[in-house]
Amino acid sequence: MLEIKNLHVKLEEEDKQILKGVDLTVPAGEVHAIMGPNGSGKSTLSYVLSGRDGYEVTEGEASLDGEALLEMEPEERAAAGLFLAFQYPVEIPGVGNLTFLRTAVNAQRKARGEEELSSAEFLKVVREKAKTLQIDADMLKRPVNVGFSGGEKKRNEILQMAMLEPRMCILDETDSGLDVDAMRLVAEGVNALRSPDRSFLVITHYQRLLDHIKPDVVHIMSNGRIIKTGGPELALEVEKNGYGDLLAEAN
């Protein structure tokens, strides 16, 4: 599914290397977690994969189902099946959540050469999916993320994911700013989407999200590299001892 080889990335504006050779493979159907201290390059990895401006790939490659990702425009990557749930979902005043969702769904269908959904079809699907995420009609009508609480914003991200049905989902610190109940709700939304041909890359600081979204593989990232890979027990180890031991070991 997702294959990253020797990825080196620096900031476009300044001479600062962020990723220094990331190798990562996420096979279909698996959930991988990336943990690591602040500034280790986790979010940068998610942005580079989804095509945000401001980064320069100096070496390496990344592919989704064999298609080279890094040359594509962000919208092409989305149409190819990549989705990034933002750490800080963006507010877009004046654009209704439903309009936004329908525009996105239909843009992707169009890019894939599929029929656009009619208003009625779209509404039926969105209402169903919103309900399981406890998103009410009012939240669907309101402008995108405007005046949403932290939990509502993250649930809205998961709703977009559910509507767009991506093959590869990247969750960037989806647990930040969530209380226990909100986290459970978001995790349930994610778990409902787990399937043999969909993969997840869950970026997080803390082990607690991984109590709800059980990873198959855990990677520890530090200073722009994956320094250790293991099973779920690795997350527990971090929770117990912090990153100190792992970093010392890697050095």
């Binding site: 401006d53 877009i92 996105a104 843009a107």
Partner: peptide, 22 residues
């Protein structure tokens, strides 16, 4: 915001229209 829209699959030109309307 432009990146957010594009990351959802909305082509750049269409994303700009949405942001202008916004």
């Amino acid at each position: 915001a432009l990146f957010y829209l594009r990351s959802r699959g909305v082509p750049r030109e269409q994303a700009i229209v949405l942001l202008v309307l916004s």
